[in-house]
């Protein structure tokens, strides 16, 4: 069955573990480097600003090396991190989310949220157009009422709100 083989194929947990370990090692090195620049030693008035973080950076680097070495030694571990086929639904929510946050800067939070929820309902849930319009508009209306009037916490607004004078 093709579906079965799709679910069983993907990057191995071991490989992803090694890559993440290397990234963490990189972070550790960055932390160390920046704190060496600041001065991680001992000044006349006690430990310098980089004293504590430098040691944290060292620990991150050392432990990430351990994680990577462990992953290299566990050759028998053949579990997959995530099947390629299952990455599709993750992408279906992740990419719209990125677009949504990007759109928020230009359209404001309310319009972007309406489009985001409506879009996903239509695309993933295959709802009728009437529901796809109604549900997100009501939701954004409630958020607007709550935040602008009840909590008086302003959220990002765009051209549409300006049109109405907000």
């Amino acid at each position: 069955m093709t579906a079965g083989s799709d679910v069983s194929r993907g990057p191995s947990t071991r490989k992803v573990g090694i890559i993440v370990g290397l990234v963490l090692f990189g972070i550790g090195v960055v932390v160390i480097a920046d704190n060496v620049r600041l001065g991680a030693g001992w000044a006349s008035d006690g430990p310098q600003a980089g004293y504590f973080p430098l040691r944290i950076g060292l620990l991150i680097a050392v432990c990430s090396v351990i994680v990577v070495v462990q992953a290299f030694r566990h050759k028998a571990d053949e579990t997959i991190f995530v099947a390629w086929a299952k990455l599709v639904p993750v992408g279906k929510i992740l990419f719209p989310l990125i677009l949504y946050i990007a759109a928020m800067q230009y359209l404001g939070l309310y319009v972007a949220s309406t489009l985001f929820v409506g879009g996903l309902m239509r695309w993933l849930g295959r709802y009728s157009w009437s529901k796809t319009v109604l549900v997100p508009v009501i939701m954004s209306g409630i958020i607007f009422w709550l935040f602008e009037y009840q909590f008086t916490v302003p959220l990002p607004k765009g051209p549409l709100e300006q049109l109405f004078g907000y």
């Binding site: 929510i93 719209p96 989310l97 949504y100 949220s113 985001f116 929820v117 996903l120 309902m121 993933l124 849930g125 709802y127 549900v135 939701m139 958020i143």
Partner: peptide, 9 residues
């Protein structure tokens, strides 16, 4: 498909 985008919002 309704709940997930709303939680993200």
């Amino acid at each position: 498909s309704i709940i997930a985008p709303m939680i993200l919002v």
